[in-house]
Design a binder for these strands. Structure first.
Lengths: 151, 151
DNA sequence: TTGACTCCCATAGAATTCCATGATATCCCA
DNA sequence: TGGGATATCATGGAATTCTATGGGAGTCAA
C-alpha cells in the first residue's frame, strides 16, 4: 500500500483553491478516491486529511444509527459534522472551506505533512514550531533512557 | 459508500420550504432515494433525517410485526408513528411539517449536520451550543488520555 | 372559494470546469 | 553521461454550471 509521506508547501489562491501534492493525489487515486476528507484536529491548530476509507472505518467502530442510544459517541458525531468531503478537480486542486482555514490560521500558503495513512494541513510556521517541539521531546526522551534517573 | 458529512445552513421560506443540501441529496440519490425520512430526536431538541434504508434496518433490529407478541418495543412504535417520508421536489426542497419544526424550535433557518449514515436538522443556535459542549468533552478526554500515556 | 400543496420559471451568487503559462522534473538517446 | 525533448506540476484567470431561494400559476380537496 502506498503511504502519505514527506511534506509539501503549496499556495492558497484568492479563491481558496490549493493544489493537493501530486504524490498525495496518486495515493488517494490508488485507493479509488477522487476526493479528500478534511476535519479539524482536536487541538484545532491544523487540519486532518484522509480518504473516505478512514471515515467509514470510524463509522463502523462507533456503530450505525441508533436513536435510543446515548452511547453513540458524541465526539464521533462532532467529527462527522465537522468533516467535509472535497472533490479534487481536474487540475488536482481542492477548495478548503474558510472555516477550516481560519481555525488552522492558514492564510496564503499551507503545508501538507504526510502521516502514513493520512496527512495534515498546517500553517507553515505553525508546523515548523510543532516540529521543533517534537524533536526536542524526542531528544529529551532519548537522553533520559540513556542516563536513567538523570536531569 | 458516500456519507452524510459536514454541515450546511439553509433558509426556511414563508411557504415552509427548505433546500436539502446538494451533497446530502446526492448521497440519497446514490442510494436510490428521492425522499427523506424525518422524525424527532428522543431528546426532542432536533430532527433526525435519513434514507429509508436506515428505517428498514431499524425495523429489522426491533423485530417485525407479530400479532401474538406484546413484547414489541413501544418506543419503536412511537418512532415509526412520528416518522414522515418527505418527497424531494424538482428544486431539491422539502416541506418539513410544522410540528417537527416547532419541536426543534426551528424558525427562519435550519442547520443540516451530517452524522455519517444519517443527518440531523437543528435550530442553528442550538446546534452551536451542542457542538461547543461536545468539543469541550473531547478535549478533556484527550487531555486525560495523554497524561496517562505520556512520559 | 380558500387554503395547502405541487410544478415551473427567474436570478444572484457560489462553485466547478476549462484553458493558458511558467517552472520543474523526468525521460531518452547520442 | 550530458543535454535537449517531453511530460508533469503548480498556479492564475475566464467561462460555464450548479445551488439556493424567491415568486407565480395551476391543482386538488374541503
Amino acid at each position: 500500500m502506498a503511504l502519505f509521506l514527506s511534506k509539501f508547501e503549496n499556495k492558497v489562491d484568492k479563491k481558496g483553491r490549493v493544489s493537493v501534492p501530486a504524490r498525495f493525489r496518486s495515493v488517494l487515486a490508488e485507493k479509488g478516491y477522487g476526493s479528500v476528507v478534511l476535519f479539524p484536529t482536536v487541538e484545532g491548530d491544523a487540519i486532518n486529511a484522509c480518504g473516505m476509507d478512514v471515515m467509514e472505518g470510524l463509522l463502523e467502530r462507533i456503530g450505525g444509527f441508533d436513536p435510543f442510544s446515548e452511547e453513540r459517541d458524541s465526539d464521533a458525531d462532532v467529527l462527522m459534522a465537522e468533516a467535509v468531503e472535497l472533490p479534487i478537480d481536474g487540475d488536482g486542486r481542492i477548495m478548503i472551506p474558510q472555516e477550516l482555514l481560519d481555525q488552522a490560521g492558514i492564510d496564503g500558503a499551507c503545508l501538507f505533512a504526510g502521516r502514513g495513512d493520512s496527512f495534515q494541513i498546517w500553517r507553515p510556521e505553525a508546523f515548523e514550531e510543532r516540529m521543533k517541539q517534537a524533536k526536542e521531546r524526542a531528544r529529551a526522551k532519548r537522553a533520559r533512557s540513556v542516563k536513567v534517573g538523570a536531569e
